[in-house]
Simulated assay, not measured.
Amino acid sequence: MRRRVAWAGALAAGATGAVWLWRHQTGILTSRPVNEWTFTHLSHLLPSEPVPRAGAPRPLRAEPRGLAEVAYRHGGIRRTLADLHRRTFTTGFAVLHRGVLVHESYPGRFASPRARFQLFSVTKSVTSILVGIAVEEGTLALDERAATYCPELAGTAYDGATIEHLLQMTSGAGFSEDYDDPDSAIVAFERAVTAGGSLLDVARSVPRAAPPGELFNYSTMDSQVLGWALEAATGKSLAAWTADRLWAPIGAEHDAFHVLTRRKPRVALGGASLNCSVRDLARIGLLMAHGGEVGGRYVVPSKWVDRSRDQRRPGTLPADYPSHYGYANHWWTLPGGAFAALGIHGQMLWVDPEADVVVAKTSAWPTADDPDLDEETVAALSALTVALGCSAA
């Protein structure tokens, strides 16, 4: 009898522990040092849909330069790129100058040229590229209401918002992006993805904060609705549209994938689900740095690239956003003409068309957001761009 009681107690404790782990899985998997593994193995943890590499990959010519000692200043202290990697938990890092791979390193424990990194909200900027292609083809219209493509959103805070509003994060829906608040909408979003919930239910629960077009509010749900509209308009999944319209034309050398929700029917995340190699991320940056052109062909219209740089200028966002950023077309704009795709935990795709510099940086920050680490990264990549501009071609 005592043995039975002991077994029952052990099973009960195990069940309680399993429930606790299930409920807290996101926090565990995104904290250091576990996140270095998580961010390169997400297809082991969530359902996914592949994005096959190009049938004819486009090689990146490599001419390595000694950039590890390039210096920058942050907080009044002189540091190097080697310091940046240590201080900002870099896992993968690639630099293109004039289309040439001049530097590449993989400080992460599970990182390599073939590793596929979770890009988080860098996905938003890729979704924007895909939307631009659909708009150019006449499949999607910027002035059309999102609910036209997604009738399930009729009567919600997203009813009335257009594709243009979603691209500029001015839908008027009051989605909260506070990762530190367990009751925020973004935490409910994450819970729906990982624990079998419904993203559509989360979207329907978002309150209206302002009329469409009046209020800038950075929102992963705006990107989710944008992704739903793109899938409805094209009749293809986000992964299939990525493979056909982007991965093949840029000559991607590695398979990528979009993670999906656990709950069926599986749903891709228009603002957070792309996983790819650092080199292929750099190829996306090269596409944007060269005005949408690859090998003499416009993959995305040059006017779409232009509008991704020229709308909300740095310093024009609300006070709770870093002053060195503006926002345009699902991209973050920077002083001097550069622009960037950003993701939580330190993911960044830096594009400077004037200097013809692209930097792809994956990271495993301890927290989702860290203004100081972001500011240091911007300082370092700005200095790197200057250094490359002063170096020999």
Rank of each mutant, 00 (worst) to 15 (best):
residue 87 R to N: 14
residue 332 W to Y: 01
residue 56 A to Y: 12
residue 344 I to E: 07
residue 228 W to G: 10
residue 82 A to R: 08
residue 249 P to D: 11
residue 217 N to R: 13
residue 1 M to Y: 05
residue 117 F to I: 03
residue 286 L to K: 08
residue 71 A to G: 01
residue 159 D to R: 09
residue 46 L to P: 12
residue 269 L to Y: 11
residue 275 N to I: 00
residue 18 A to P: 00
residue 241 W to Y: 15
residue 347 Q to P: 03
residue 104 E to G: 13
residue 34 V to W: 12
residue 133 I to C: 06
residue 260 L to T: 01
residue 368 A to K: 08
residue 338 A to E: 11
residue 349 L to P: 14
residue 350 W to R: 02
residue 244 D to V: 03
residue 357 V to E: 15
residue 151 P to S: 00
residue 102 V to G: 11
residue 287 L to I: 06
residue 90 T to S: 15
residue 116 R to D: 10
residue 277 S to W: 06
residue 317 L to T: 03
residue 345 H to Q: 15
residue 369 D to H: 15
residue 324 H to P: 04
residue 155 G to T: 03
residue 215 L to R: 14
residue 121 S to M: 02
residue 381 L to Y: 09
residue 311 Q to I: 07
residue 331 W to Y: 15
residue 116 R to T: 13
residue 117 F to N: 14
residue 119 L to Y: 01
residue 65 R to P: 01
residue 103 H to R: 08
residue 85 H to K: 13
residue 313 R to F: 12
residue 181 D to M: 01
residue 56 A to N: 10
residue 127 T to F: 06
residue 373 L to M: 14
residue 85 H to Y: 02
residue 132 G to K: 07
residue 8 A to Q: 07
residue 44 H to M: 08
residue 178 D to R: 14
residue 177 E to F: 09
residue 72 Y to W: 02
residue 38 T to G: 08
residue 61 R to H: 15
residue 2 R to C: 05
residue 80 T to P: 12
residue 117 F to Q: 08
residue 64 P to N: 07
residue 35 N to G: 02
residue 261 T to L: 04
residue 174 G to H: 10
residue 163 I to N: 07
residue 253 E to V: 04
residue 386 V to N: 01
residue 365 W to R: 00
residue 261 T to P: 14
residue 196 G to A: 03
residue 228 W to H: 15
residue 73 R to V: 09
residue 353 P to M: 00
residue 173 A to E: 15
residue 26 T to I: 14
residue 330 H to C: 01
residue 155 G to M: 02
residue 329 N to P: 00
residue 202 V to I: 05
residue 4 R to K: 04
residue 51 V to M: 15
residue 267 V to P: 01
residue 26 T to P: 10
residue 354 E to H: 11
residue 206 V to Q: 12
residue 372 D to H: 04
residue 41 H to Y: 01
residue 155 G to K: 06
residue 49 E to C: 00
residue 158 Y to E: 04
residue 268 A to F: 09
residue 298 Y to G: 06
residue 295 G to S: 11
residue 383 A to C: 09
residue 69 E to G: 03
residue 100 V to P: 09
residue 260 L to F: 05
residue 337 G to P: 09
residue 176 S to A: 13
residue 296 G to K: 10
residue 61 R to I: 05
residue 215 L to W: 10
residue 28 I to E: 06
residue 11 L to M: 05
residue 355 A to H: 14
residue 175 F to S: 05
residue 94 A to R: 02
residue 68 A to H: 01
residue 324 H to R: 14
residue 344 I to C: 12
residue 58 R to T: 11
residue 275 N to E: 12
residue 240 A to K: 13
residue 259 V to K: 04
residue 277 S to L: 06
residue 214 E to N: 08
residue 385 T to Q: 07
residue 28 I to Y: 06
residue 357 V to G: 12
residue 15 A to R: 04
residue 363 S to G: 15
residue 108 G to S: 05
residue 347 Q to W: 06
residue 233 A to L: 03
residue 62 A to V: 08
residue 352 D to C: 00
residue 8 A to Y: 09
residue 345 H to L: 02
residue 386 V to R: 01
residue 98 R to F: 03
residue 95 V to G: 04
residue 237 S to D: 13
residue 184 S to R: 04
residue 176 S to Y: 08
residue 38 T to F: 02
residue 89 F to R: 09
residue 57 P to K: 07
residue 140 L to F: 12
residue 90 T to F: 07
residue 257 F to L: 13
residue 220 T to V: 10
residue 49 E to M: 04
residue 281 L to A: 03
residue 382 S to M: 01
residue 204 R to W: 00
residue 75 G to A: 06
residue 203 A to D: 12
